[in-house]
Structure formats: structure tokens, C-alpha cells
Nucleic acid binder design. Structure first.
Lengths: 176, 176
DNA sequence: TCTCTTTCCGAATTTAATTCGGAGTTATAT
DNA sequence: ATATAACTCCGAATTAAATTCGGAAAGAGA
């Protein structure tokens, strides 16, 4: 047996164990149905229930899993209108007031963005009247220069962060 | 994937009891933490565990609750880049190919939209190179005329559909 | 009023989550 | 090489929660 070169420096001592293939397979199931039991998950990935539990617990602690939540249906909640609103604001200091809009349950996402727009909002309202009401509130905020609203007519896909990565995207080639 | 026509589902089912205040309070908790036990939920809303269970079961069946899922951290999954891509396509028949992009785990949302754009995509990738790779694949699709990409610099809020409704929005006034 | 339906509760049961001790593995240091 | 420490796993035992069940209370409609 040849001795390995020990020159390599290993410096991951205090870092959390990285997410491995089994972790991603577990997460792949849980992003679709988090009511799956540890026993079932174990059968899928070839581990015992306590082993899966241990992994999930670790990922929760490391905040790779941010939360377990129910996904609601917009229409059933009485919110038929979905819109993306691009907000152009004068001066970056006023972003605070805009972010405060997150208090409203109609606002689901707030991102600052590149391009010709400062903020992107995802807003789901009861109807077009409520959306208009929201836009009025937006213009009431000091510094809001302009907005562009894109109303979603149909939603073909809507889901959270997926654990898989398409490595071929970073190579310019086709899907593996 | 075809957008789900919930109207028909509603018709076929016997008149479902509508979502009441207690239901919304339960959902409000579950959208933040679906690991909350029925006993705890019951204590919060003044019901027994079986009563809460019954309500949740009903809402699942009625698909007001679409699923229970884990919310993952994009960075922890190795996806640091978030972008919204507006796609303008020539002819509506080609939408099928675009919707097929939903196969990629990087694609989180696909909506058809009003405005000067046909589709809005929400895409989360490893880095800018992978995002560029994705854009190349987009342009490979027949009929894609142009795209506009908005990269999210910071995310201030990101959550699912909320059960509460701000009624004052539909009245043009202030928050109640 | 009577009946049908819905919603709820407490108790009992079933199922799953969680804990625990120890075996096997790997990495690191002596 | 060998010991040490740190992981990861498993099966068994325990604890906690989900689920089922029968029947009581409340409401709707005839």
C-alpha cells in the first residue's frame, strides 16, 4: 500500500458536514411531501428511521431546512390575483419603508434587483380592485418614482427551492 | 403542466364549508411552522386536538392546503443566484416547450403574464455562469424573441400564500 | 317539534417521533 | 502502526403525537 501524500491541508474542522447525495434525496422527497415518515424515507434511501431523523435534525439545525410549512392555495384563500410589481425608487434610503410593506399578508416576496428597477414585489390579492388599492399605497410612499405591474394570467409552476443542481448548466452543454 | 382548473373541482365536490376565522388562524400558524402539534394548535384557537385535526383534514381534502413541505435555504443548497426572467415568445403555441423548462430544478416558477412579456420565470442557480447557461438554453427554444433578466441582489421577504386578507385594500383606504 | 347534519369532545388506539447504548468506520494524532 | 476521538449508523425501548371512535351539543330545514 503506497503512503498517500500528506501535504494536502484539511481545514474543514469546525465546518458543518456538507450536504451529501443521500441528504439531497431525502430533501427531494420532503420538498414535495414533508408528511413522509422517517421510516418511509429510510426505506427510500437505504437507512433506518433514526439515521434519517438524525440527518434531518442536523439540516434543520444548520438551517439548510429553514422550516416546515403548509402550502396554501391562493384561490381557496380568496386571492385570485397574482402580480409582480417592479418598483423604481428615488434614493436607496427609502427602501426601509418599502420593505415595511411586507407586513401585508398580500405581499409574498420582496427583492432588490438589478436592471432598470430597484425592487421586485410578488403580491397576491383578492381581485384587481385590491391590487389597485395596493398600488395606491405604494405611490403614497415617499420616493417611489414609478412602478410596472405584471399580472400573472396562468401559473404553470410554483414551488420552493429544490435540492438538485443541473451541473451541465455551468458547462454550456445539454442536460446530462 | 396545465394550470389547474379549481372551478371544476369545486363543482364536482359537494358544497364545501367555507374557510372561517378559526381555519385562518390555524393556517396562519401552519404557514410558519407545520410541525406544530394539533394539541398546541387547539390550545391556541380554543379547540381540542381532534377538532383541529378534523379541520386540517378537511382543508387538505378541499385542497385549500395543497401540501406540507420543507422550505430549503438556497445558499445551503448551493444556489446563490436568484433571477426573474421575462421571456417574450413569438406565438403562443410554443409555450409548451418553455413550460417544459420546469423539469429543471433551477426553475421555481413559471407564469404567463400581461404586459410586454409573455412568460415570467423565477430561476435559482449556482452562480452567474449557470444562469448564463440557462439563458442559452432559453434562446435555443424556437420562438423565443427576447428575454430580460432581473437578478435579485437581496431578498427581504420570501414566503408562500398567506391566509389573511387586508380588506381595506379593496376600499382604497389605509390599513384598518 | 323532529330529523338530519355538522362540529365538537374525551377516551382509546394506533402510529410515528425520539431517545439511547453500543457497534462499525473513518480521520487524526501520537 | 496504534490509539484516540468523532461520526454515522442500527435495533430496541420509550415517549409523544396522530388518528379513530362513539356519542353529546348545536344548528338548519321541513
Amino acid at each position: 500500500m503506497e503512503p498517500k501524500n500528506t501535504d494536502q491541508i484539511q481545514k474543514n474542522t469546525k465546518t458543518q458536514r456538507s450536504i451529501d447525495t443521500i441528504d439531497r434525496r431525502i430533501l427531494s422527497v420532503l420538498t414535495k411531501d414533508a408528511t413522509t415518515s422517517y421510516a418511509e424515507l429510510g426505506a427510500m434511501v437505504g437507512l433506518s428511521a433514526p439515521a434519517v431523523h438524525e440527518r434531518v435534525k442536523r439540516m434543520r439545525k444548520a438551517e439548510a431546512i429553514k422550516a416546515t410549512v403548509v402550502a396554501l392555495d391562493g384561490k381557496a384563500m380568496g386571492k385570485s390575483f397574482l402580480a409582480f410589481i417592479h418598483v423604481e425608487a428615488r434614493g436607496w434610503g427609502k427602501t426601509t419603508e418599502l420593505v415595511a410593506l411586507g407586513q401585508l399578508p398580500e405581499v409574498e416576496e420582496i427583492h432588490s434587483a438589478t436592471g432598470d428597477t430597484g425592487l421586485i414585489l410578488k403580491v397576491r390579492t383578492e381581485n384587481s380592485v385590491a391590487l389597485e388599492g395596493f398600488l395606491w399605497r405604494l405611490y403614497d410612499i415617499e420616493g417611489v418614482r414609478s412602478t410596472k405591474t405584471y399580472v400573472a394570467l396562468s401559473t404553470y409552476l410554483e414551488r420552493g427551492v429544490q435540492p438538485e443542481i443541473t451541473h451541465s448548466l455551468a458547462e454550456g452543454g445539454n442536460i446530462k
